[in-house]
Computed example of a mutant assay.
Amino acid sequence: METKANETHRVLRFSLWSDGRTTLGQPVTTTTYKELMDEFCHADLLGFYGVWVSEHHGFDDGYLPAPFTFLAHIAARAEHLHLGTNLLLLPLWPVRLIAEETAVLDVLSEGRFTLGVGLGYVQHEFAAFGVPRSQRKKRMEEAIPYLRAAFRGEHVPDGYNGAPLPVTPQPAQGARLPIYMGANTEVALDRVARLADGFLASGFLSDAPEQEVVNQWHILQSHLKKYGRDSTSFPIVLSTHLWVSDDPERDWVTLLAPSMAYRQYVYAKMGTDVGKAMPAEPDPKSFKREHFLVDTPDNVVKRLQDLQAQVPFSELCFWSHPPGVPHQAVVENLERIARHVLPAFK
């Protein structure tokens, strides 16, 4: 039996999602970040809700490695946008540093920050930071209670010989600062239900994109109930690709399919462990537009409304600047979404 969303979930916020890249493998330059910041500021004026950024290290195309620095600059430029990490690779970080960076960013942004975390998976990243990948789940489990205590203003045992030590400053939101988690497997969804304040869901990435999200929700809902948590008020952010056009097939062939193929290849290549066979570079023609949220405005609205009737997600964040898509085309897509899609969900 499908779970229907209640009326409080009919409103939908739209946020941008960035990994700091704008090109198909060209180095990041000052122009890269200037264009992205211009896009974020324009989105702020258009009425978008926020910006989420992701993190990776050692990618040869300039994937964003410094999410807190990047978000701090956005906070200074776009005074209304909410900010979040989607995802911070928590096991790679000293947990005190996460607490301090989070607190400073939350104070700078006057309480606009959400800390979104995930386990990570890329072998070379764990090697680069001297963290055994086998310990990533343990580090996650230990970090969340630490962060909660730090945000409450409690002393933590980081001092000499375990002496109590404060974590300062305190976040502007204090203990209310939300910690969201990403997950795909049932074990990870159980962790979300047990430890997190919200779920960062990934959607429209498979042959059955809507059903993928519905399945994740049903699993998460069962675990929320197991821990006595209210599934009707648990925040869900749907992370996906979104592009609206009067001629979506044209835009798909000329702009988006090559970008999707590039992105998938980079993820697959960088995520391949040493000694494993490297993946073949995918053909853009092998990707199907209907597997992504690339459509006319009316069709996008209908697909989202139909999905929201089954899954109570209250925010959608989308890759705002797919690699290889020109800056002006990105700006025009933001304007089309603001004009034709956002009003349907207010």
Rank of each mutant, 00 (worst) to 15 (best):
E7Y: 13
E7R: 14
T8R: 09
T8G: 09
R10W: 05
V11K: 15
L16A: 12
S18W: 00
D19W: 00
T23D: 03
L24G: 10
Q26Y: 04
P27C: 10
T29Y: 04
T29A: 10
T29N: 13
T30P: 09
T31N: 08
T32E: 03
T32W: 01
K34C: 10
L36A: 11
M37V: 07
M37G: 09
D38Y: 11
D38V: 09
E39W: 00
E39R: 06
E39F: 03
F40G: 01
C41R: 14
C41Y: 05
H42I: 07
D44M: 11
L45K: 15
L46A: 06
L46E: 10
F48Q: 00
F48K: 01
F48C: 04
F48E: 01
G50L: 03
G50F: 02
W52E: 03
W52V: 06
W52Y: 09
V53D: 02
V53L: 10
S54E: 15
S54P: 14
S54T: 15
S54F: 01
F59H: 13
D60P: 07
G62W: 00
G62E: 00
Y63A: 09
L64S: 13
P65C: 05
P67I: 08
T69C: 15
A72N: 12
H73G: 06
I74H: 00
A75F: 02
A75P: 02
R77P: 04
R77F: 09
R77I: 07
E79Y: 04
L81F: 07
T85I: 05
L87G: 03
L87P: 01
L89W: 03
L90K: 02
L90E: 02
P91D: 06
L92E: 01
P94W: 12
R96H: 11
A99H: 00
E101V: 05
E101A: 12
A103I: 04
A103G: 08
V104T: 06
V104D: 02
V107W: 04
L108Q: 13
S109D: 03
E110I: 09
E110N: 14
G111C: 12
G111W: 00
R112L: 10
F113A: 09
T114S: 03
L115K: 01
G116L: 08
G116F: 02
G118Y: 02
Y121K: 10
Q123A: 11
Q123N: 04
E125M: 15
E125W: 05
E125T: 10
A127E: 11
A127Y: 04
A128G: 13
A128L: 14
R133A: 06
R133I: 05
R133W: 03
S134R: 13
K137D: 09
K138E: 08
